[in-house]
Design a protein around this nucleic acid. Sequence first.
DNA 1: TTGACACATTCCGATATCGGCATATGTATG
DNA 2: CATACATATGCCGATATCGGAATGTGTCAA
Lengths: 119, 119
Amino acid sequence: MYAPMARVATTSDVFNAIAEPQRRDILALLRAGERPVTELAEALGMTQPGASKHLRVLREVGLVRDRKAGKQRLYGLDARKLRAVHEWTGGFEAFWNDSFDRLDAYVQDLKAANGKKEE
Amino acid sequence: MYAPMARVATTSDVFNAIAEPQRRDILALLRAGERPVTELAEALGMTQPGASKHLRVLREVGLVRDRKAGKQRLYGLDARKLRAVHEWTGGFEAFWNDSFDRLDAYVQDLKAANGKKEE
DNA sequence: TTGACACATTCCGATATCGGCATATGTATG
DNA sequence: CATACATATGCCGATATCGGAATGTGTCAA
């Protein structure tokens, strides 16, 4: 009937998939090539079911692909969808590079007043 | 003293902040310049408290800054942290252009070598 | 077939998240 | 001061999420 219409499922999109640090780690590791689940799990210090679950999310959004190889299942990177994120953030490039409006003034202000901020 | 150690707070990082579509919309809108909360809310079809809450998240991760202007509070973009995301995804650039070629090569390699002596 | 291995799925508990609503805080203006 | 306006915060309900543990499924090999 009414129902507070709570949260919307978000695990099905790339932005959310890479919001999880461990999943980013998996993707980064896969740049070196295909890897079986157990190897990923061990390399990243996570349990096998944990790795499987993260891989499932990554697979469902299309960031990785899997391939059977005997007993194992090799996961490989499919970075095409990361391009969308790269381009989205790229749309803000003008705002972190060069001065714009009062942002620049504000930033200068911060630097002057705060010194170093670390990054 | 047990506690399944459930989920880790993630709202305090940039990747998670931009995982929410409405927050991305806010950031995109703010490229046009500073805006008061109400205007953002109306422009994006969200309630005022809703906008305030999203803005709070964005502020806490440093993606927006706020400035008092009379009765209003103007929110402005601070895209510096988006650069980190841009660069992280940029680390995969070589893989979204020819990821399949690379993968194929890797696969051939595996088949030829059989074992897992990679690198 | 049996057993070992690789991986996926399910159930669970704790907590995070989001939207809606009501309300509190803050600020200008009369 | 009082009131209107702008924004923030608190509470709630529904649901999503994550990790752990146990268990299920699939595949090779003897």
